[in-house]
């Protein structure tokens, strides 16, 4: 087992942690956008594929 801590390991760690955080931030961004977009959309009818008389055109 290698225990020696080299400067190289520090750089590698900072890179791994940085990329990890960037990925988490990207996930959070997608989540936030989803909330923002869905809450801007008005009430949605028919999303469950059940027919509703109100949605059917009446002649």
């Amino acid at each position: 087992m290698i225990r020696a801590e080299h400067e190289m390991h520090k750089r590698r760690l900072s890179r791994n942690v940085g990329v990890g955080l960037a990925l988490c931030a990207f996930g959070a961004l997608i989540f936030g956008l989803t909330i923002a977009k869905v809450s801007e959309t008005g009430p949605v009818e028919g999303f469950d594929h059940v027919s509703r008389p109100a949605m059917t055109a009446t002649e």
Partner: peptide, 14 residues
Amino acid sequence: ITIEHEAGFGDYVA
């Protein structure tokens, strides 16, 4: 050689 090409996260930000 390894050390030279081992970038820290700050290098990517730069």
